[in-house]
């Protein structure tokens, strides 16, 4: 079914994201995985926001009972902003780790253990 396509994409993105996080050893690629996973969640929420026959809440004279609440869109925007902040912080950590440890291989970033 066509309307299931977004959810299929969500599952695919989730699997790709998890696989990237668990299989890749490069920190930057792991951050990619986190980003893909965030996108999967964002797509999931925005897909939930679609209501058949609903009207976007931007028209002044539309029938008010058919208007769709813009909550999922608001959630997604917030989540994207949070994702950007997280990615920026993670990348800046990676920069410092590369400068001090000389590597971005996650297997070698284990000075703290046990």
């Amino acid at each position: 079914m066509f309307w299931n396509l977004p959810y299929v994409a969500v599952v695919l993105l989730t699997v790709i994201g998890l696989a990237t996080i668990l299989l890749k050893r490069n920190l930057i690629k792991i951050f990619f995985g986190v980003g893909i996973l965030t996108s999967a969640v964002n797509l999931f929420i925005i897909a939930l926001g679609y209501r058949e026959g609903g009207i976007a809440p931007i028209y002044t004279y539309a029938a008010s009972e058919n208007m769709v609440m813009a909550t999922p869109q608001a959630l997604t925007l917030t989540s994207i902003v949070i994702g950007v902040a997280t990615t920026a912080l993670m990348l800046s950590f990676a920069v410092i780790i590369y400068k001090t440890y000389g590597t971005v291989n996650v297997d070698e970033i284990r000075e703290l253990k046990e």
């Binding site: 996080i21 792991i30 970033i109 284990r110 703290l112």
Partner: peptide, 17 residues
């Protein structure tokens, strides 16, 4: 138990999964 604390970030995530 001690070797489980590998210190590798992806292992931490794997445990959550």
């Amino acid at each position: 138990v001690v070797p489980l604390h590998t210190g590798i970030a992806t292992d931490y995530l794997l445990w959550i999964f």
